[in-house]
Design a protein around this nucleic acid. Sequence first.
DNA 1: AAACTTTATCGTAATATTGCAATATTAAGT
DNA 2: ACTTAATATTGCAATATTACGATAAAGTTT
Lengths: 107, 107
Amino acid sequence: MGTTKTDLFTAKQNEIAILAKAMGHPARVAIIEYLLKADKCICGDIVNELPLAQPTVSQHLKELKNAGIIKGNIEGNAICYCINEKTFHILKDYFTKTATVLKQQCC
Amino acid sequence: MGTTKTDLFTAKQNEIAILAKAMGHPARVAIIEYLLKADKCICGDIVNELPLAQPTVSQHLKELKNAGIIKGNIEGNAICYCINEKTFHILKDYFTKTATVLKQQCC
DNA sequence: AAACTTTATCGTAATATTGCAATATTAAGT
DNA sequence: ACTTAATATTGCAATATTACGATAAAGTTT
């Protein structure tokens, strides 16, 4: 096993799970945090900012990109990574919507 | 390796990562979804609702509980699981706050 | 083109996660 | 006490994740 049975769940459930999972690592949270406050979002800067080796950061960037949370634009021999607003809003909307339903709880 | 280097990141970054990670599985998203719409939130009902074996569901519930996203109250020989509003709002607030900063992006 | 910069990929070791059958635990009812 | 019902734990196999050194790929500069 070790494999998630995605076929047993709805597309929406899987979508949220994929996005949440991508945010489920402090390095990737740190990357998002950096992208938010940085004027320029160059990969090399992210590597310098994070306390992890370059291949590790590259891998984390790849996972965020695969989930659709960030996107990368080639700029010369560097790459400019940015947050994908559209995808990020899916997460925001999900938690906002979910939190508002949290009224009457039985326990 | 395989172990996350949590000590290299801030407490907040780790907190968000732990919560997001807990939501990073469709079964756990489905559990939260069920708890939101259910009048009663008994573990047995969740087991019946999900297309997974009882030990597997129990494990997912444990992970949500460890992350602090849900809490369980013993009711006779059954257990009533409920969403922990306080923790859930941490996630909501994080994504809300983050999404509002998403104005000027360079790419 | 050679040297340099920047980022990605490969390979690999250590650990974590997923899923379930079998079993244990705990409480309720008889 | 015995049985039933509900949930947790154990043990294990398969797979995924994390991390990084070494190396490759692609662009830039001289």
